[in-house]
Amino acid sequence: MTAKSSVAARPAFMPFGKTDSPRLLRALLPALSLALVLLAIAWLNQRAISYFGFTLMLNLAIPIALATVAQMFIITGNDLDLSIGAFVGFVGCVTATWLRDTPILGILTLLGCVGVYAALGALIHWRNLPSIVVTLGMNFVWQGLAVLLLPKPGGRAPDWLLASMSVKPPLVPFPVLAALIIAAVTYFGLMRTSYGAILRGSGGNATAIGRAGWSLLKAKIVLYACAGLFGVLSGLSLIGITTSGDANIGNGYTLLSIAGVILGGGEFVGGRVSPIGAVIGALTLALAASPLLTFMHLPPDWQVAANGAILIVVLAARALISRREVEQ
């Protein structure tokens, strides 16, 4: 009852004016699931909860978080990117070869990659194409390019990248710091700027945004370019951690990134996404997949299953909360 009366007392223009307890619970769900996984890890192995523990456990979470944010931009526009994993792999190959040997060519290629993403956004809008099929085709294209560039695993990350990925900031482990920065930047850009609202609106109600005079083509291009940019960052950070390239290195990222967005409270349609949630979702998946299982002495065979199970549990919780939301 107290919650309800406080809601009524709120002025109508508050951004969360309609907040009630199920809705709040729903918003907190990603953080709660991460906390739960962390608690489980702490319970199983206390030493893991330390500066070095987090640095090790969350190392691979950085590229996953960046790929998840890339996917989030696409999902904001009601599309789905089935090629992000292959794209991250291709960026990785460029990073481990051209970016080290011929930096100018490498930088131009990576910029070109962002350009290709922007062009895909334009193509999808112009011909009104199903993004699933276009990105499915692009999945082959990126994979093909990666194999051509680096037929066998190898190459080496540029030294500056290796150095920047092994920074040891005081007090806060690097991956945690990186996750905070990624979440803050995307949150501000997408949720707190006026153009961010337009971008989300293009997924929520494209007709309304179009009638209001905004270019839907431009919105789609910006969303895809952002996805390309974060995809490039994901590939760079991945190679900075693994030190060498492999054409298949990013293959699992497509599904992980979709799962991360959904886990973080994003919806498939309607431009309802949450940048902070997406980053938290990616961290949860990264922790649940490998460290948690290791501490539980389960074989790595069950890594992917752990991701699936977490996804199902969180979605079940969300369904329960939403049901209460509707009833109220």
């Binding site: 199903p130 294209v141 051509l148």
Partner: peptide, 24 residues
């Protein structure tokens, strides 16, 4: 090579769907 095979397959899928166009 395998790379070119993947590349061409991908381009063909994108080209076919672009030519066919999406739903009105």
């Amino acid at each position: 090579s395998a790379g070119v095979r993947l590349l061409v397959t991908g381009f063909v899928i994108v080209a076919v769907i672009s030519a066919a166009g999406g739903e009105k």
